[in-house]
Design a protein around this nucleic acid. Sequence first.
DNA 1: GACTCCGTTGTGAAG
DNA 2: ACTTCACAACGGAGT
Length: 604
Amino acid sequence: MPQSKGQKNTIIWFRKGLRVHDNPALIEACRDAQHVYPIFIIDPHFLHNSSYNSSYKVGVNRYNFLLECLTDLDQSLRALGSQLLVLRGTPQDVFPRIFKEWDVQQLCYEVDVEPYAKSRDAAVGQLAAAAGVAVSASVSHTLYDTDVLLRAAGGRAPQTMQAFTKLIDKVGDPPAPLPAPASLPPPGPVAEAVTSVPTLTEVGYQQQPTTVFKGGESQALVRLGDYLADAKWVCAFEKPKTDPSAFVRPATTVLSPYLKFGCLSPRLFHARLMAVYRGAKGVHSKPPVSLRGQLLWREFFYTVGSTTPNFDAMAGNPLAKQIPWDTNPAYLAAWKAGRTGYPWIDAAMRQLSEWGWMHHLARHSVACFLTRGDLYISWEAGKAVFEELLLDADHFLNAANWMWLSASAFFNQYYRVYSPVTFGKKYDPEGKFIRRFVPELALLPTKYIYEPWTAPLDVQQRCGCIIGKDYPFPVVDHTTISKVNMGRMKAAYEANREAAGAAAAAEAGSDADGSSDAEVLPASNSSSRRKAAAGAAAAAGGSRRRPAAVAKRGGAAAAAKKQRTVTDMFAAAAVTAAANGNGVAAGVAAACGVDAGDAVVPEL
DNA sequence: GACTCCGTTGTGAAG
DNA sequence: ACTTCACAACGGAGT
């Protein structure tokens, strides 16, 4: 590593990777440099009041977490003889100006494979080229360079964790983490205005954060050390067995927000973890359930996500089942606000709003409830809510997990449905979690805590919580609706098989002119297309000569029509029940503070 | 190409 | 407290 007195002026551009440890871009920026300018750009793209893209809303908790990360990074850089320079504006506006002002020769940053980041970096790359500035991008947000993994996989990312784990075994250990630099060449003279991290108010937030988690690399390293110090716990860790209701000390590490912003290097996490495993003489849990397995899940979803078109949407996503979800702004608003009338679901959703975090299995519960389990609302709507509220909201992981839970991709056993009543009860029979996050239910006897609508009125009165007034009735009847939805999922799966079969047939029938619409259809590989073709043939009554498109239209439409009728009948029954004082649909109105029929601005 | 295997994390009843 | 089963039965990956 040459330490000669440098001549270059370089910029290290922090976006994620908000750390000084294991930061190859930072090391590169220091090489042969006279001045290193460490910058962060407050990009309006990510601001909640952005005029650029209103779908990229960032909740106050996450934005505050980011500002804490920046303050911490600034302190670390000052200890190394430098400081963070915070700039405002779009990167496209900022760079041409500072390239010139600071007489820059090189720009260094960490590779970011998210769609927005890729287009942003491509645009900045052109500006750099125009200004005669060399660009150096280093991989350190993931364990591996996703391109390397993709090549090792033969050009196609695995779609199962098993196959991905095999790939990792083949590729071997990830690169070792790098130490932080001992010191940094100082930046040259800069305007005073760019040397301070802004406050929440300055970037336009009115509210105060409510989370219990604090951002920054130092926090991340303390938390990592804290959890890894318990070698017994680390070696026994099996995520499916952890407790989603634990909140005094969460049952998982809560390192995800730090990985999201790059306060913590996944490679450092991995290396420290392997050291703990070695100390335990090889007796430890294994992927996919182990702690190391969690890092591999992250890697898996980055790999498949960054190489799949439209991975964050249903339409045009070759991995996602095309499912005709309902649009129901009132249900969506009730879910987001934690007012579905199911205390377990509502406690989790309110923990999300308050803390910006919930346990993985709680995420499963609420995601299943919103989509295939109960409300039958698109996973994209749920994803948008998580994207706003989670501290650890991560583009690929969020999309992948929502597809998983909605049985749109990766996971297909749609008939396995989480109960909004009994799932939580297994872990927390007393309802401590509910009492903490849904305080209006705090005094309810344990017997009724998961199903408060079953409490006699005198009990409700004694506890100061009248159902339908202080806390809503359930928006849907889970037992009934989950069965209806299972039927709708079955029909949707059939329709997808038929569509894939039609595509396969069209593909086989066309003279390889490539003009079929096969590319946009869900089944992405030949094996499932074949199966789908067989399914389509069967659906067409064995008549292989019948045009596939006809089979598709007929079958899918009939199935959809039938299911719509069933759902409408249920909805009508619910309204009738409400009119009779049963309160199921009335609960929706109470939950939202509006009539059930009123339009609430949808999330998407 | 047909077939089997099995998948990080379902529920509820029965034995 | 544990296992096993029906529920209704998916699809990727490997043989």
